Computed example of a mutant assay.
Amino acid sequence: MTRDLVLVTGGSGFVAGHCILALLQAGYDVRTTLRSPQREAALRNALRAAGEEADGRLQVAAADLMGDEGWDGATAGCAYVLHVASPLAAAAPKDESELIRPACEGTLRVLRASRRAGVRRVVLTSSFAAIGYGRVVKRPYDERDWTDLSARGLAAYPKSKTLAERAAWDFVDGEGQGLELAVVNPVGIFGPLLGPDLSASILLVKTMLEGRLWAVPRLMFGVVDVRDVADLHLRAMTDPAAAGERFLATGGDFMAMQAIAQALKDGLGARAAAVSTRVLPDWLVRLAARFSATARQAATPELGRVKNATSAKAQAMLGWQPRPAAEALVATGESLLRLGLVSPPKP
């Protein structure tokens, strides 16, 4: 029997790498896009280290979200597409279009190429950032909610994810010609690394383990394991009920940064000795924001807010069962330490 071919965009990324691994383990053939062919060896080495020999079952295509070249070849012959690639800057960009344009234009490029190739379904990796920012609700956020783009102080990243997802739904509704779409909206993604490239959430854990956060701001966010995010992508890819649906992915109730720090200390013991559970008062964060770019990222309308979200829909409709948030956090720390990516705390 011929195996279905699945395209995963942005194969060098944290989530994409785990999606590729999960697809190969499930018996699919995989093609992935990379902006730079030089990254292919690192990807194959990472998969091999995770126990998956991808030779013969993993193809690599060159394509960039900001250009048309390569996308028709990348989608050709694919039954499904997981569109995972999206820009995410470690710091707020000076021009928000640096994030918004690649997110929106890249999503539409992938959808148009998928339609031309006769792809059955595209699963788009969106974010909780497209759901839970700019407006306050008195219940846990769920898939009915959308980030308010008119909200004052809304950062570029939530804008980019919201606009890209809106554009995807509008395209499928108006020009999809039968192309199916499902969307996965993860909260903060943690878990084991496949290689040394660090996402923003992984950098947070690294910074804590190195003792470079002497105290934490009063911020809350969700935690989900990257392995569970990959699993949800595969479920959304094939389950008939998933067509036309979005699925919020969280490993449980939202956690304050202090609770995240404590989970690392509890799970890693002496190896997390440099992690601080002290809490910065809001006024001090806002004062520091006048002088520090890092503090400005914390001194947002989210500072001091209590919020939560639910993944009940994904669990009920697709049978998805995420790991506990603390397990994802500890797995992050374990892999950072194993890979030698944590610098010793300064005396």
Rank of each mutant, 00 (worst) to 15 (best):
A243E: 03
A298D: 08
F247N: 11
F291W: 12
K265I: 14
A236I: 01
L268T: 06
A259C: 12
L280D: 04
A328K: 02
V223Q: 02
D228H: 04
R323D: 08
D231T: 15
D225P: 12
R218W: 03
V216N: 14
V224A: 03
I260E: 09
L264F: 01
V279M: 02
P324T: 05
R271V: 04
V285Y: 02
W283D: 12
K265D: 00
P322R: 00
Q321D: 14
A259G: 15
A230M: 06
A259I: 11
T300P: 09
G269P: 02
A256Q: 13
W214L: 14
L268I: 02
A242E: 01
T300L: 07
R212W: 01
L303C: 07
N308P: 10
W283R: 13
G211N: 01
A295Q: 10
A263S: 12
V306M: 12
L280E: 05
L284C: 10
E245G: 13
D228Y: 03
A242Y: 00
V229N: 04
A299K: 08
L287C: 13
I260P: 03
Q315M: 15
F247W: 06
P217I: 02
A274T: 07
Q297F: 11
R323Y: 07
V285L: 05
V306F: 12
T250D: 05
R323S: 14
A309M: 08
E327V: 14
A274G: 05
P301D: 03
V285F: 02
L280K: 07
P322F: 04
S276A: 07
A249H: 02
A270C: 10
R290V: 09
R246Y: 02
A243R: 01
A241W: 00
H233F: 06
D239E: 12
G319L: 03
M208A: 15
R290P: 09
A298C: 12
E327R: 14
V226K: 00
A273C: 08
A261T: 06
L209I: 06
K307I: 15
A289R: 07
L219W: 01
F254P: 06
A256P: 09
A309F: 04
A309Q: 08
H233D: 06
Q315R: 15
V223L: 02
D228F: 05
R290Y: 12
A295I: 07
T294D: 13
A256D: 12
